[in-house]
Design a binder for these strands. Structure first.
Length: 267
DNA sequence: AAGTCGAGCAACCGCATGTGC
DNA sequence: TGCACATGCGGTTGCTCGACT
């Protein structure tokens, strides 16, 4: 009521993203990081709302995304977590590095639900064992049947810390969605604590990134490359030695656009 | 070959939540 | 304290494409 919509509807593009739009968004975020989604499309030269850009980045462009089908073990884990957490897809997704809530939700609705119904677990497919009907309620109710480990993580907001390790030789200040974290005497930070854009903005610290789940993109960037990148000598995606596994859009198509597209810092 | 149907999934919508003033 | 705004989240829609008739 009286509240402005999150985005201007007039004149903004909707529907599937084009390769050029993907390229612009990707380039912009890799160049500048993410500070305010609302201004991202404007500065990146996109006729999209910030919400749409955010979704596209999170669900598709993020370089640490794991692509490909879910394994049986992952499906089992999803079923287990769903029985405990209900339709809290983001919480479930937080247990699967490289997977998005949307992906898990879609997989649940299209595959697992069917599978469970086939096995005669109709109710389980539709509802969690400990059904939580609203997000408001879920914040107030502590699920008594929640397994101790998950309960613990819920309470302490502990996240799995086995994916990305970033080692520094100097105190490190990075931001996590505008929240600054100073890792004074800490040599190791984890992916959940690091905003990638800010990571590249750290010019004075020596950083090495080692990660299995970052094999896709960032692990292939040496510090010198990212420094010159930030200094304005933009590098093309070709130089990044991309190693995306099973992308829906081949990265080759992006590199062909490099000559015709402009980067924000060249505007 | 053309039409129909359904599965899969990307993207949108609206509401909730967090934050700053 | 209340308002405005940005972002996050979950439900839903609608497009695409392959299988089938």
């Amino acid at each position: 009521m009286g509240r402005k919509p999150c985005c201007e509807k007039i004149g903004l593009k909707r529907g599937p993203w084009t390769i050029e739009e993907d390229h612009r968004l990707m380039n912009f975020i890799l160049n500048n990081g993410i500070h305010c989604w609302r201004v991202v499309p404007k500065l990146a030269g996109l006729l999209r709302c910030g919400k749409s850009c955010r979704l596209r980045w999170i669900n598709y462009l993020r370089p640490d995304l794991k692509r490909g089908g879910f394994t049986d073990a992952e499906e089992d884990r999803i079923m287990e977590l769903h029985s405990q957490l209900g339709n809290r897809w983001s919480k479930i997704a937080s247990h699967f590095p490289g997977r998005t809530d949307n992906e898990i939700k879609n997989h649940w609705n299209t595959k697992i639900k069917k599978k469970m119904k086939h096995l005669g677990l109709n109710q389980a497919a539709d509802e969690p064992i400990n059904s939580i009907t609203s997000r408001t309620e879920s914040k107030q109710i502590t699920n008594p049947n929640m397994s101790s480990t998950i309960k613990e993580k819920e309470e302490t907001k502990e996240q799995p810390k086995d994916d990305v390790i970033i080692e520094t030789t100097k105190p490190l200040i990075v931001s996590n969605n505008d929240e600054e974290i100073q890792a004074e005497n800490c040599k190791t930070l984890y992916a959940e604590e690091v905003d990638i854009g800010s990571l590249f903005a750290m010019q004075d610290n020596e950083i090495s990134i080692s990660s299995s789940s970052f094999s896709s993109l960032y692990s292939n960037i040496s510090r010198s490359e990212s420094s010159s990148y930030l200094a304005g000598d933009s590098i093309s995606l070709e130089q990044w030695d991309l190693d995306m596994t099973d992308p829906l859009v081949p990265w080759d198509l992006f590199t062909n656009l490099d000559d015709t597209l402009f980067l924000y810092d060249k505007m």
